[in-house]
Design a protein around this nucleic acid. Structure first.
Lengths: 329, 329
DNA sequence: CTGTTAGCGCTTTCAA
DNA sequence: TTGAAAGCGCTAACAG
């Protein structure tokens, strides 16, 4: 089937393989020959051999993508964005998952590099010195998502700013007794930055306030189970590190008959679909993950082609005011 | 960086490239030379050129995967399963998305084929004659997920059986006035098979009953909006094509003060995490999508290596009895 | 515009 | 055990 080569069709047309190659790559071929070659290709169903082609032309039209895990809506959206851009540009994605292991992430980068991809996009869980060393030791462009680090190229979401804005909103609604229901700081963006932004606003702008931190994980269930600890602290408002956490908490509150937002205000981050359809709808800050994916693909393609790059980018935020936060005056 | 070739290290060691190649591929090399070559490789950081290698040895260690869309938990789980097996066997995934377009699905298969993958796994949205023709015209093994069709190799979930079992359970709980809140039949597994199984049980085993069909889509929101139409039909129980649909419906019922399962029973399919944590927890049938992914990867690898294949497989079901269905006696 | 000529880096007979 | 030699299928000067 795929054993028709450029030589075969050259023979059929009584031309040299160079001409066929030229035809294939848009070089000079006489109208006459063009026609002949075209027909021969159609008849034989000739397909250019990917590997032979790549062996010569030094680029593979492959983009390596390292993701932290695959069964996540967020990651899915990012991949979607990357995919759409790659498709347009006839690049194919080579994907590997780090399974949230830092060591594995490095291995994936290396593996992708060895497979000759033209560029690598890493949805990182943390940028270490090893990462930086690797980036500096190879000429393959590598772009990081999800964490800022000025030693490498990155595109990131401004989690810090998101936290900051949310704090501002909480303050405007007169909340000064708050619980921050967050996740472990090992997760730089969700665990660290969002929290830091939130705290910083209060630190800088508010005099008497109280923010209690409670740690949960990303699951709905755990958040639900944290409900009692949250209410024990008697906050007027709870800021949750993700919408999913917020949803879990809300279920607990509902079951306890605690009204949101009348008795307690809540908010999240993420802008998930369900957040808007739930009652009350959740006040949240949404991130355009698909855009993140798109921009990163465009960016790496740009680096591959032009070798130059604009500055590190940060994706804009989208504040969504729902019904879950009340002004307590 | 990666410009060290087999020739370079051959020169360094004063042996021929053949010897180096043999060393790399486990052929005969003297102990002495082995040592020398090993050192040279380590020192230079030599990496075998993927494309040159593939050009000769007819296999690429690449598995093509076509998915319908990427931002879906279900797809994510399947990919996870595929990924874990591929990793163990040192295969890399080449992924393309059909974006739920049948035409695009065919294009993806073709594209992957042209890129020289050793096998293709297609998470299909529908197997057409074109699919079958393509499969028969190439020697690259192609495996389909998510739909049964005896003209091709497939691994599938037994949606029909799931529907049948659920119907049996509904009947045991004395429901004979039912609404089936499903999706369009274009989706063979969720739209067609689950429904068919459900209806067939009643057709075969029950004499006086009524099942009204209502069509929605996969979204939480739409299901929520369908609530009124559902209740207008006054069923004693509602079977939803997915847990997500069930969740949407439940929100509507809750807001209307209609008690589940006291006033109306509901159930779904899928076994999502949230389904169990919600109140009341949802009676559902869960599918092990990760297993589906794993088995399919194992299967295609097996076909690639042995060229023979066991029978088409169907993934087992897991019935989860929650609190959302009541025996109305 | 076209054919000839070299390879790209690796594997694989075939003799030695 | 080893090396020489012949390609895998394609691209890219170069001279016509």
């Amino acid at each position: 089937m795929s054993k028709v080569t450029i030589q075969d069709i050259a023979n059929m047309c009584q031309v040299s393989k160079s001409s066929v190659s030229r035809y294939l790559n848009g070089g000079y071929v006489s109208k006459e020959n063009k026609e002949k070659i075209k027909n021969a290709i159609e008849q034989t169903g000739y397909k250019t051999n990917f590997f032979a082609k790549r062996l010569k032309s030094k680029n593979s039209n492959l983009i390596g993508v390292v993701i932290p895990r695959i069964d996540s809506i967020t990651v899915g959206k990012v991949l979607n964005g990357i995919n759409s851009v790659c498709e347009e540009n006839e690049y194919t994605i080579l994907m590997e998952s780090s399974n949230l292991s830092l060591k594995k992430e490095l291995e994936c980068i290396n593996s992708l590099y060895n497979q000759g991809v033209d560029g690598i996009i890493v949805y990182t869980i943390g940028i270490t010195n090893e990462h930086i060393n690797f980036v500096n030791s190879v000429k393959t462009p590598i772009l990081f998502l999800n964490q800022k680090n000025n030693n490498v190229s990155y595109i990131s979401i401004d989690d810090y700013k998101a936290g900051y804005i949310m704090a501002e909103y909480f303050y405007k609604n007169n909340h000064k007794n708050i619980v921050f229901l967050g996740v472990n700081e090992q997760d730089k963006s969700v665990g660290l930055e969002r929290k830091k932004g939130f705290y910083d606003f209060y630190k800088k702008n508010v005099s008497n306030y109280k923010i209690d931190f409670l740690e949960t994980d990303f699951s709905f269930k755990k958040a639900y189970n944290m409900g009692k600890m949250v209410t024990n602290l008697n906050p007027t408002a709870v800021i949750c590190a993700t919408d999913n956490i917020c949803l879990g908490l809300m279920l607990y509150l509902k079951e306890k008959g605690i009204e949101v937002p009348d008795q307690i205000s809540v908010a999240g981050f993420g802008g998930y679909e369900v957040s808007s359809v739930v009652k009350p709808s959740i006040t949240t800050i949404s991130f355009d993950y698909e855009l993140l994916g798109k921009l990163s693909a465009e960016d790496i393609l740009n680096i591959i082609k032009n070798k130059n790059r604009k500055e590190n980018i940060t994706i804009p935020l989208n504040f969504i005011i729902g019904e879950s936060v009340k002004n307590i005056n």
